[in-house]
Structures are given as structure tokens and as C-alpha cells.
Design a protein around this nucleic acid. Sequence first.
DNA 1: TGCACATCTGCAGAACTCTTCATATATCGA
DNA 2: TCGATATATGAAGAGTTCTGCAGATGTGCA
Lengths: 127, 127
Amino acid sequence: MQLDACNVRLVDPERVASVNARMPGEEDIADTADVFGLLGDPRRLKLLVALLDGELCVCDLAAITGLSESATSHALRLLRAHRVVGVRRDGRNAFYRLDDAHVRMLLDLAVAHTEHTDAIHPERSEA
Amino acid sequence: MQLDACNVRLVDPERVASVNARMPGEEDIADTADVFGLLGDPRRLKLLVALLDGELCVCDLAAITGLSESATSHALRLLRAHRVVGVRRDGRNAFYRLDDAHVRMLLDLAVAHTEHTDAIHPERSEA
DNA sequence: TGCACATCTGCAGAACTCTTCATATATCGA
DNA sequence: TCGATATATGAAGAGTTCTGCAGATGTGCA
């Protein structure tokens, strides 16, 4: 057991050093965690999955997710602030679209994974 | 503007129906959101990125993330409960490893994305 | 202009999350 | 067996997040 510069016990200082060298910077970690965090709420996730196919207006998104229109609007505002979705306004309606290629990749991967899981465990599918 | 069975206003009922048909079940959405949620905390994310290269013990993980050993242990417990990581005990040490192929894919994708972003915006890299 | 509709926003309460502190458990070496 | 080490755990407090409510904004129609 060794001690590092800050007097912390280390079991494998070389591995720690190489992991630290490869580790993205704090800001990148924070940004990435933010993105995952946005996907980490089931209602927001459902909202985003709904948008995979193309733009939808707020009331349709509310109907799909089962959220109130207010909650939907709040959620979309958050996603908009992080540039994950974009808006197109047409008269009284606001049409939201998925506007982040990275998030789209993550969603595609996740949805593909649930479908794969269903294939293995069909009993877990919805009735 | 039309009304659906629950008396909700819909702008594009056909799109809503097709999105609903394609939508994963509530349980799959919840499971997926859970996974994203686990990745949505910067310290847990750093922990998991550190484990991409192989197993590490608790004190090394604490040193890498800058967390206290207690906080590290709590975080690992949560990840363990969701079967994202696994443990190997060797004497007094506990070596944790990434144990979920789906999470590994998500992490690889995310890390690749931050590297790509750095290539475009090198000024955002750490000092 | 006035009213209805679609969406947005600030606020406040409820619920959840993360960390620390204190303590518990388990292992190793003397 | 005893003390030190490594990790795990429970409880509690600070901070954050999400939702509903109430009201604001902006658009379309008569």
C-alpha cells in the first residue's frame, strides 16, 4: 500500500495514474452527466423517444406521455435549455423536434437494447 | 383539433397512434431511465469511466474520483444493486468491475463523443 | 376589440438524492 | 487474540428536482 501526493492510500498507483491520464476533464464529465441526467427521468425519456420519429406539438406529447400540459412544457423547457430539442412555432402550436445527434444515438441504442431484452424475456413486454 | 378517448386534445392523432404503437412499455422506459439516471451523476459517471479499463479497488476509485471512501462505497453499492458493477473480494480489498455490456456501450459512446467535441473545441479541454 | 385557445412561466410544497458522520463488519499480521 | 486496515451501512441534514396551480403571453377568429 502506498500514499499519493495528497496522503491517500493507493493499492495500484500505476493503474490510478493511467486511468487519470485517460480520464476526460471535469467539465466534460459534468456535461456528459448532464445529458445522461436529462435521459434519466422516465417522462422526459418517453418524451424524447416519442420525438425520435419527428416533430410533435406540446399537446400531442402530453397525450403520449400522460403528463399534464404544464409538466410537459416544463420538461420541454429544460430540454430546450440544454439544446436537446428545438422548437418550431406555427400559429398557436409549438412543434418540438429532437435536435441533438448524440442524444439520438444514445436513445437509439437504448431502445434497441430494450427490444433485444424483450426478445430474450418476452414475458416482460407490456400487456 | 380532435379529442381522444380520454377527452384530450390532439393535433395529429395518427402520428400519436403510431408513436404509441412503437413506444416501449412503461417498465422498459422505467428501466432505461434508471440506467441513464445512474450515469447522470458526475461522480458515478467518473467512477464508471474509471472502470472501463478494468477492475479497481474502493480506495483507488476514491482517489480517482476525489470522493470520500464512504461516498464511494455508497455509490458503488447503488451501482451494484442495479448490477452495473460487480465485486471481487480479495482479502481486505474489494475490486469492482464494470459488469453491464449495455452500460459499457453507452459509456464508450459518451467518452468518444467528448473526445470528438474536444477535437472540434480544443479550448474546452482541461488545463 | 374581445374572447378562446395553446403554450409558457414563477412559485411553493412534496419527494427524492447525495454526502457526512458514526459505527459495524471482516480480514490481516503481530 | 488484539489492533490496524479496508470496506460497508444507517441515519440525518442540505440541496436539488418535479409537479400542480395560478396567472401571463401570444395567436387566431369573429
